[in-house]
């Protein structure tokens, strides 16, 4: 059974159809990359999979581990093992970074009938993973993402992923705005988590990230549909030729 099976997915935001019949299958252990121009629906796909309620699914179905993902609330999808690394991580003043992650871990553990972790069990693990991501200890008790630099916010997303150990990790343009050092660190964090039980959906605009995280499959998303699929070499080809024959079909009025 595939880990994620998306069939004929149509989704709209405020009445505008963004996804127009998307099909995609991911198996555990695989890394898929989705590339495409701005406005093609990459972030919409990520948001739908994370169950953001402002995105309305009008047709199609999505199975996650054999269960209907579209029936799930965001917290249920997370507990089942879906993780979204946000393109724009949200600042939450007043909630400590470590406290937040521990609350999330315990919510997920509770869902699976496991005992909660106390701070003593949690902190050493958290700090160890922070070290891999070369994050400052000071960020432990700072409010979630508040006053973090762009790079710190993205690393913080990967840190949360490393702690929550999802089955499916969706990285929504995690590379945007990162300098090469931060990119390397983020990639190191992701690569450390690759394994036979986990799949990644890496959404990106640029080939650059894929130099560090080698995908098994690359898909090109244009105007709400996947128009081409291939191996890692496809990303390199796109770097040279752009988004291929379908690019001409992209309406000019899309936001830059």
């Amino acid at each position: 059974m595939a880990l994620l099976e998306i069939q004929d997915l149509h989704a709209s935001v405020e009445g505008h159809e963004i996804l127009k019949g998307l099909n995609l299958t991911l198996n555990a252990g695989e890394v898929h990359s989705i590339m495409g121009p701005n406005g093609s629906g990459k972030s919409t796909l990520a948001a739908v999979l994370a169950r953001r309620e402002t995105y309305e699914v009008t047709r199609g179905r999505v199975l996650f581990n054999g269960k209907d993902l579209l029936e799930m609330k965001p917290e249920d999808a997370a507990c089942e093992g879906v993780f979204l690394a946000f393109q724009y991580p949200v600042e939450i003043p007043g909630i400590g970074n470590a406290y937040f992650v521990r609350s999330a871990m315990n919510a997920i553990r509770k869902f699976h009938g496991q005992d909660e972790l106390d701070a003593m069990d949690f902190l050493p693990l958290y700090k160890e993973r922070m070290k891999i991501l070369e994050m400052d200890d000071k960020l432990v008790n700072r409010s979630v993402n508040e006053g973090f630099s762009g790079g710190e916010k993205k690393r913080n997303e990967i840190l949360q992923m490393a702690m929550l150990e999802p089955k499916l990790a969706i990285l929504d343009e995690t590379d945007s705005g990162l300098d090469i050092d931060a990119l390397r660190i983020v990639a190191k964090g992701v690569n450390a988590m690759r394994g036979p039980d986990r799949a990644f959906l890496v959404i990106t605009h640029y080939q650059r990230l894929l130099d560090y995280i080698t995908p098994d499959f690359v898909h090109v998303l244009v105007d709400g549909k996947i128009v081409r699929s291939g191996g890692p070499e496809l990303a390199l080809e796109l770097e040279d030729t752009g988004y291929g024959p379908s690019e001409a079909d992209v309406p000019q009025a899309l936001p830059a």
Binding site: I92, F100, A107
Partner: peptide, 27 residues
């Protein structure tokens, strides 16, 4: 935005609301 961020990490809605309220009060 904040509510969705918390929920997307597995925290159910009521707890997420409670956390945000508490954070505001904690000032």
């Amino acid at each position: 935005e904040q509510l969705f961020y918390l929920r997307s990490r597995g925290i159910e809605e009521t707890s997420a609301r409670n956390l945000l309220l508490y954070a505001f009060a904690a000032e």
